[in-house]
């Protein structure tokens, strides 16, 4: 008998399972039926309370280039052939050096860690309750983009803010198929491991800059 069979054998005991709670009902009863502006306000407040930088804009490329200049960035990592990335590229010209994530990490791991100043990715949606961005990284915007560079810019369409995590999963029907990696990101990386003193910039980005786009991410 294998370890698997022995373990499962020990766990098989007669008896009936207690009833599962009505999770959907619980969250439904707590819905606030907010308008988009109300959700934006909530999302902003929570994100800012954990040191994220939040901007509302109708012209994100201009705003991003301006912030990049004020932060003194040497370069910005963008996705491989994404509509928003190319849109930025068409406007950035000589204002900011853009690096495209076009090769697998294996060939340029050290450069990614040592030379990239910041990155730009799209957030799929967000959660107002906890001040959370939802990212489903993919081939064009890989996982390390929101992790390795010290500054992470995230674009979010303001019409994609859910009330809570449960609503996000249900509305987007996650259980029908999960991506390789799904991420909830709520602020820049942090730690309180030294005498409970909060410090930002643990291993992930030191800064999270959220650009809330009022007119979609492509206009």
């Amino acid at each position: 008998m294998s370890a698997r069979e022995r373990i499962l054998g020990r766990l098989r005991t007669p008896g009936t399972a207690p009833e599962m709670p009505d999770v959907a009902g619980w969250y439904r009863a707590r819905q606030r039926n907010e308008t988009t502006p109300e959700r934006i306000t909530r999302l902003r407040a929570v994100l800012e309370s954990v040191h994220a930088e939040v901007h509302e804009t109708t012209d994100w490329p201009a705003l991003l280039l301006q912030i990049a200049t004020s932060k003194g960035l040497n370069n910005l990592l963008i996705g491989d052939n994404t509509p928003h990335g190319e849109h930025l590229a068409s406007l950035a010209a000589d204002k900011l050096t853009l690096i495209r994530y076009s090769e697998p990490i294996d060939g340029w791991r050290n450069r990614l860690f040592d030379e990239v100043d910041a990155s730009l990715t799209l957030a799929r949606s967000a959660i107002a309750e906890t001040g959370t961005l939802i990212l489903w990284p993919d081939a064009s915007e890989p996982r390390t983009m929101s992790l390795v560079p010290p500054i992470h810019f995230a674009l979010l369409d303001v019409n994609k803010i859910h009330a809570d995590f449960d609503a996000a999963m249900r509305t987007e029907n996650w259980q029908a198929g999960m991506p390789t990696n799904a991420l909830l990101i709520s602020g820049p990386s942090k730690t309180a491991d030294i005498q409970q003193t909060l410090a930002y910039g643990a291993h992930g980005p030191r800064e999270l800059v959220v650009l809330l786009c009022h007119t979609g991410v492509l206009s």
Binding site: V46, V50, E129, T130, G131, T132, M178, P179, T180, N181, A182, L183, L184, I185, S186, G187, P188, S189, K190, G204
Partner: peptide, 13 residues
Amino acid sequence: SITTYFNMISRPR
């Protein structure tokens, strides 16, 4: 209310 990261892994590369 939430941690900075919630990392959900379903597949290798």
